[in-house]
Computed example of a mutant assay.
Amino acid sequence: MSEPPWRYLVALGSNVRHAATGAPPRVVAAAMARLNTGETRVIARSRIMPSDPVGPSLRRYANAAVVVETALDPPALLSLLHGIERDFGRRRVGQKWRARTLDLDIVLWSGGRWSDRRLTIPHAQFRGRDFVLRPACDIARDWRDPVSGLSVGHLCARVLKQAS
């Protein structure tokens, strides 16, 4: 396991307008800026990309990814991310995959694997999600999934090939 500061690949998504911030792409941009303050430093950011919804939500998403550097361990970073989501109006109740103002997920980290009752890294479903892999490929193409051993670039190419 590497030593702090840790690097994390974090996925961002929004498909609901925020009263103060505006449309979903602006929500994602504001969340990226918020991740570059305090205990985390953004060292790479992807473009903000549109994507179709997963599950019952009907609204299109704005998605992006960032690489952040921090001394926080995975549970502490997760708590910080949940706090940012709450600040943007996110409520973790009700139906999965519903419309949301902001969703922040830890996808990978420089420490390899992590698992406890609240969090699993790598993110369990990222390998099949183009809306995570396309932005991640912009900034972390060479990062490796510690489970499959494949790079983010390779995983992205697989998902895009399956979609075509």
Results as ranks from 00 to 15, higher is better:
Met1Leu: 12
Ser2Cys: 05
Glu3Asn: 14
Tyr8Gly: 04
Leu9Asn: 03
Val10Ala: 03
Ala11Cys: 09
Ala11Tyr: 11
Gly13Leu: 10
Ser14Leu: 12
Asn15Leu: 11
Arg17His: 13
Arg17Leu: 12
His18Cys: 11
Ala19Arg: 09
Ala20Met: 11
Ala23Arg: 15
Pro24Met: 10
Pro25Arg: 06
Pro25Phe: 14
Pro25Trp: 13
Arg26Gly: 13
Val27Cys: 13
Val28Leu: 12
Ala31Gly: 08
Met32Arg: 14
Gly38Cys: 09
Glu39Met: 07
Glu39Ser: 12
Thr40Ser: 12
Thr40Tyr: 00
Arg41Lys: 12
Ala44Phe: 03
Ser46Cys: 03
Met49Lys: 12
Pro50Met: 04
Asp52Ile: 06
Asp52Gly: 15
Pro53Gly: 13
Val54Leu: 13
Tyr61Asp: 09
Ala62His: 08
Asn63Phe: 00
Ala64Cys: 08
Val66Ile: 04
Glu69Val: 07
Thr70Ser: 06
Ala76Ser: 06
Ala76Ile: 01
Leu77Trp: 06
Leu78Thr: 01
Leu78Trp: 04
Ser79Ala: 15
Leu80Trp: 08
Leu81Ala: 07
Gly83Leu: 11
Arg86Pro: 01
Asp87Met: 08
Phe88Leu: 06
Arg90Cys: 10
Arg92Asp: 14
Val93Met: 10
Val93His: 13
Val93Ile: 14
Ala99Glu: 15
Leu102Met: 12
Asp103Gln: 11
Asp105Cys: 05
Ile106Ser: 03
Val107Trp: 02
Leu108Tyr: 09
Gly112Phe: 00
Arg117Tyr: 03
Leu119Ile: 07
Leu119Ser: 00
Pro122Thr: 04
Ala124Ile: 10
Ala124His: 12
Arg129Cys: 02
Leu133Asp: 07
Leu133Ile: 04
Ala136Tyr: 01
Asp138Gln: 05
Ala140Phe: 00
Ala140Glu: 00
Arg141Thr: 09
Arg144Tyr: 02
Arg144Glu: 04
Arg144Cys: 04
Asp145Met: 00
Asp145His: 00
Pro146Gln: 04
Pro146Gly: 08
Val147Leu: 14
Val152Leu: 00
Leu155Val: 01
Cys156Ser: 07
Cys156Gln: 09
Ala157His: 09
Arg158Lys: 14
Arg158His: 02
